[in-house]
Simulated scan of single mutants.
Amino acid sequence: MSKKLVMAWVLGLAGCASQPQIVEREVGQFDLKLGTAPTRSMAQGLVSPTAGSTFRGGLDLAHTSGMYVGQWAPSMGLLQGTLELNTYVGYAQQRFADTPGFELGVIRYSFPEMENWDRHQYYAGINLAGSRLGGALSSSPGRTDSTLLLELGSFRPFDLDVRLKYASHSMDSPMYHVGGSVRVFDDWSLNLSRPLLGIHLDLSYTDSNLSGPECGVYNGQNAHCEGFFMLKAERALF
């Protein structure tokens, strides 16, 4: 299995400010978040990734009652790829950080430039201390697929933030590729991050149990089907 290594350094020049990933504002009884990273717990794990996408972003508007709506664009279609919009609405409730909470909602994956590509995904899950377990049912023309998602977080060995994500996907009918078909597959990711001398370091590894021609039908949680490393370093000027 081929392995890829990507190193990205995000450095600022004099007089230029580094943009934060998330900007949060209170608007009456609403909490508004804008940024270049998805913010919803269940929806964050289900937004469709796009490999190599540079222009991405979204917003999330949540009410004090627990209702929320949002939109995330994993690909703006400016330099490469196809324009994609993930729009979601749902309800989340968790009274205290150390008590279980739950979340449910629906996501619509829209592809304005493509016909018959739009689909919906209904999701529900439970959250506890930064970890979550959930399931989703995806409905698209001619097929219904399901996903079981597990994410473990809030582990801090050696002053590292550690997150582990695992997903199992099952299709109601096989997806065919050259040499065979796929009906069930798994994917996973490991993320390690920590601040060091004013720089935020982030190392991630993603993989799945598909390889070679099987990757032609991959549509899981990772931007890449086979093993992929990424190292990022970010430093804010202000």
Rank of each mutant, 00 (worst) to 15 (best):
Y123Q: 00
G153D: 11
G125C: 11
P157V: 00
L237G: 10
A73T: 12
S131M: 12
Y123F: 15
N116Y: 14
P20T: 04
S170T: 14
D187T: 01
T147K: 10
L231Q: 05
P100S: 06
L34D: 03
L231K: 00
Y123M: 00
S53H: 07
M42S: 00
M1W: 08
M230E: 01
D207I: 06
G70P: 05
E151T: 09
P213D: 05
I22T: 10
E84V: 03
I107S: 06
A51D: 13
H120L: 13
R40I: 07
H120C: 12
G12N: 08
D172C: 14
N116K: 15
F30Y: 08
E84Y: 03
Y122E: 03
V69C: 07
A62R: 00
L160C: 07
A136K: 06
G58S: 02
W72C: 06
R40Q: 10
L201G: 05
S2I: 07
G105Y: 06
R194A: 13
M7F: 10
E103R: 02
A223P: 02
T206P: 01
H169Q: 08
M76Q: 08
S146K: 14
S193E: 09
F111D: 03
N86R: 04
A62V: 01
L128G: 00
Y109R: 05
D145N: 15
K165L: 15
S168R: 15
K33E: 11
L83F: 09
L61M: 02
Q21T: 14
Q71R: 11
N86S: 05
P112R: 00
L59G: 11
S131Q: 09
N209V: 03
L190I: 14
M114F: 12
P112L: 08
Q19A: 12
M1L: 10
G135E: 00
L5S: 06
R25E: 15
G130H: 00
F238V: 15
H63N: 06
T82A: 12
E26S: 09
G35L: 10
V69M: 09
S146Y: 15
E151N: 03
R183A: 14
L150T: 06
P141G: 04
S75I: 03
L149E: 15
T147I: 13
R163V: 15
L61K: 05
A92T: 08
G220V: 09
H120W: 15
W9T: 09
G179S: 02
G52S: 06
M67I: 07
R56D: 08
G35H: 07
I22Q: 13
P157N: 07
S110M: 11
E113G: 03
W188R: 04
W188V: 02
T87V: 14
G125W: 02
G15T: 05
L152H: 03
L34I: 05
R56Y: 12
L46I: 00
